[in-house]
């Protein structure tokens, strides 16, 4: 099967982000990485390919800054990588539209299964996969833990609150991936070096016949009005009475005062 994995480059989510004086997140010193959920998607696609054949193409919306992320994907199982540089796109609907157009031009299309991370670790909107499926007019299965081939389609394990349910979908379809019970592989020295020499395809909005009215600022259905840091946690109350009985009495008073008991 031919597999497409849509990836996003995000600031390293193990580093805490603060806001600068201009109110924007300070990201200059935070290393960009491939969104964790997308790495799960890529690993799942790579394992699927290794077990059942086919190829894996990765695709991202972004300029030259995304090259390290794409190279990193090429070193852990992707066969082809494409980027579509378009700065005017500003909401998930626009991104999904561009991905839908690019998916018809990138790699070994037509794709049988399009993998997306279930969400990104920066904006966490969790919408792109579903919107992409809507635009392409194909089924979407969200929160997927495993994918197996079946005649004419795929069998999927979909995560639920209690465990998982098994669903089937015809191909082509979009799947959004959550963390399975394994970790993405590490690149080997050899695969890292080989990835340097692999081509990265350049796409443009015009080249994929995307209509600017569908993805530009005017088309945006969602607009970001502000970013704020989460409120600092208030420091707790210290009970420093010398006698235990007195300390307990104080604590009970405070709990009662807050109507907690």
């Amino acid at each position: 099967m031919e597999l497409l994995v849509c990836i996003k480059q995000v600031p390293d989510d193990s580093v805490s982000v603060s806001l600068g004086a201009d109110g924007a997140p300070k990201l200059d010193e935070i290393a960009p990485v491939v969104n964790a959920f997308d790495t799960y998607a890529l690993e799942m696609a790579a394992r699927f390919k290794e077990a059942h054949g086919g190829s894996v193409t990765v695709l991202t919306i972004g300029g030259d800054a995304t090259v390290p992320a794409l190279r990193s994907c090429l070193s852990v199982g992707a066969d082809h990588a494409y980027k579509l540089a378009e700065e005017s796109v500003c909401d998930t609907q626009g991104i999904a539209y561009l991905l839908s157009k690019a998916s018809a031009k990138a790699g070994e299309q037509p794709f049988d299964v399009i993998f997306c991370g279930s969400e990104s670790t920066d904006a966490s909107s969790g919408q792109v996969g579903a919107q992409l499926a809507e635009i392409l007019g194909i089924p979407v299965v969200t929160n997927v833990l495993a994918v197996e081939p079946r005649e004419g389609g795929v069998t999927l394990k979909q995560e639920t609150e209690e465990g998982y349910r098994v669903v089937e979908a015809p191909c082509p379809c979009v799947v959004t991936i959550v963390k399975p019970n394994y970790e993405p592989r590490y690149p080997s020295i050899k695969s890292k070096m080989a990835a340097r020499k692999m081509p990265i395809g350049d796409l443009t909005a015009a080249g994929v016949e995307a209509d600017a009215a569908q993805f530009g600022p005017e088309a945006a259905k969602v607009r970001r009005v502000a970013i704020s840091a989460p409120p600092q946690r208030q420091s707790g109350v210290k009970i420093q009475e010398k006698e235990a009985a007195e300390a307990v009495r104080r604590a009970m008073e405070m709990l009662a005062g807050q109507k907690l008991i």
């Binding site: 590490y186 690149p187 890292k192």
Partner: peptide, 11 residues
């Protein structure tokens, strides 16, 4: 060019 090798080794 080898910096990325070092990054993955470090990880």
């Amino acid at each position: 060019e080898d910096q990325d090798l070092l990054d993955s080794v470090r990880e």
